[in-house]
């Protein structure tokens, strides 16, 4: 599904990823762990096409298509979703308007007619229930005045709406208390199907108690230095990252 080969990425001329390779097959859940500054968020940003990051060499393909040639919105419509570490506030744009535009753009991309207003509202109601999303949040502007936990929940709600094939959760657990974490993780698990893949980017093992990965990779200095199963995460928890360097 996702194939990253020897990826080198720089920002402002400074190389962050230095030859990273990763393969994610349909239905798999991969956790990417590593200390601060190891390049975890850079990887997420690069997959979704943040223009601030420059790919100097290497390749990323998604279902056989070259992602690097595609705009961020094309990547999204291909079925890649990023739950941002720091979701952006967009004053004046209501959540409803935002989501309806996104859904209809996706339908247009897939050559489907736009969703009617009533269908859309029904669909939204359904998804809100799934992730336990408060009505008052969807009536507000995108992320504006949301607490940290509400923003993360809103990310998962959008994920539920857009039904991606590949979901990347960038530090979705950071800044969440235990209850919020459980709700967010539950949402993610409910959305999981056998065809859908997930990449979890996290600093701590905590999230992995709720969303169990098939594989765990340790990122250090722009490369994956160790891969393993979920036991690796536990090992990291007790030993820290230093022994891998």
């Amino acid at each position: 599904m996702l194939e990253i080969k020897n990826l080198h990425v720089s920002i402002d001329g400074k190389e962050i990823l230095k030859g990273l390779s990763l393969t994610v097959k349909p239905g798999e859940t991969h956790a990417i762990m590593g200390p601060n500054g190891s390049g975890k968020s850079t990887l997420a940003s690069t997959i979704v096409g943040n223009p601030a990051f420059e790919v100097t060499s290497g390749s990323i393909t998604f279902e056989g298509k070259n992602l690097l040639e595609k705009d961020p919105e094309e990547r999204a419509n291909e079925g890649i979703f990023l739950s941002f570490q720091y979701p952006v506030e967009i004053p004046g744009v209501s959540m409803v308007n935002f989501m309806r535009t996104a859904i209809n753009e996706q339908r247009k991309y897939r050559k489907l007619p736009p969703m009617s207003a009533s269908d859309f509202l029904r669909f939204m109601r359904e998804k809100k229930a799934l992730v336990d999303m408060d009505n008052k949040l969807t009536n507000r502007s995108v992320n504006e005045g949301f607490s940290g936990g509400e923003k993360k929940k809103n990310e998962i709600f959008q994920m539920a709406m857009l039904e991606p094939k590949l979901a990347i959760l960038d530090e979705t657990d950071s800044g969440l208390d235990i209850d919020a974490l459980r709700i967010v993780a539950n949402g993610v698990n409910k959305l999981k199907t056998p065809e859908k893949s997930t990449i979890l980017i996290t600093h701590y093992q905590r999230l992995l108690e709720y969303i169990v990965p098939d594989y765990v990779h340790v990122l250090h200095d722009g490369k994956i230095v160790k891969s393993g199963t979920k036991e690796l995460a536990l090992e990291l928890e007790t030993k820290g990252y230093d022994w891998l360097k």
Partner: peptide, 30 residues
């Protein structure tokens, strides 16, 4: 127009021109 907001919208599949329009409507809203 806020570049970060534009990028965020694009990652949700909204095309660049459409995202710009949405942000301009928002600008006019108040």
């Amino acid at each position: 127009i806020d570049e970060q907001a534009l990028f965020y919208m694009r990652t949700r599949g909204i095309s660049l021109p459409e995202a710009r329009l949405l942000l301009m409507y928002a600008f006019a809203a108040d």
